[in-house]
Design a protein around this nucleic acid. Structure first.
Lengths: 136, 136
DNA sequence: AAATTACTAGTAATGATTATCAATAACTAT
DNA sequence: ATAGTTATTGATAATCATTACTAGTAATTT
């Protein structure tokens, strides 16, 4: 996992600025294993930067997703969730409690089939079901 | 592909009613290979049932998804799209033109890994990229 | 240290989706 | 067939996650 210095090195590029807000959002997402919504990230980052606004959260999340530092996906209620681990993996989403579990396995697909269709930028694998806790 | 009689047989169950609106929405989705939004479905079904309302479209789409007659997923703009083919398959989504291509292949995953987590109800595989047409 | 401009905070606007409710019509039982 | 039950519809209002806007601020460059 990247430390703050590494984040600084990685995130800063020509024409882009390294703001405390941007660092804090990425640091938070890298520090948790859950898959928070923008609203939750807002609540949590606010503890360290009380004046941060929700718009800043959204803007930076878009930035971090675009840059590939984090992953985004929609949960069962179609709310966008974020994952600080950008490595391809499967999300198991409980349809009752909406909790998300990571499965660190990449399904094997026939890449050749996609070559005709175009260039692949990212994949998203979701599995919906009911977790063991909710299935009592 | 189901014909109208088969749809009637399949769709009607105790406590549920077979309305012309419901039939028409399913018939439309079964007749196309594209992946329309609720708005597009509204426009198309309206040609046959001019008085149908958008709320009825949404309500029946939820019904059809719940029953497993159709599939839903979010496109690159996070708008819900619908697929009249409920068989598991991969969606290749162009990030430029938002067009969706079907890949009739099911990635193999280690089901055992999910047994610990809970019961699987459905899977959703999406691949984002740029289609050959947009990549000129 | 000054200049440039990407970024922020605060707020308003957007728009897909859901909720509401009286009227209707699909189904059931007689 | 007919009447009764209630799932569904049409129309409209409400919701709320997300985006747009703007003047002020601060990160970076020169």
């Amino acid at each position: 996992m990247l430390n703050t210095v590494q984040i600084k090195e990685k995130i800063n590029q020509a024409g882009e600025r390294l703001t405390p807000q941007r660092i804090e959002i990425l640091k938070y997402l890298r520090s948790v294993t859950c898959h928070p919504t923008a609203e939750i990230i807002y609540t949590e980052v606010k503890k360290n930067i009380p004046t941060i606004s929700l718009g800043t959260i959204y803007r930076n999340l878009i930035y971090l997703v675009t840059k590939g530092y984090i992953i985004q996906f929609q949960n069962n209620d179609n709310i966008t969730c974020y994952d600080g681990n950008p490595k391809d993996h499967i999300h198991f989403i409980c349809q009752k409690c909406n909790k998300v579990h990571d499965i660190f396995e990449t399904p094997t697909i026939d890449k050749a089939k996609f070559d005709k269709l175009g260039i692949i930028n990212k994949v998203e694998y979701k599995v919906f079901g009911v977790c063991t806790e909710c299935n009592q």
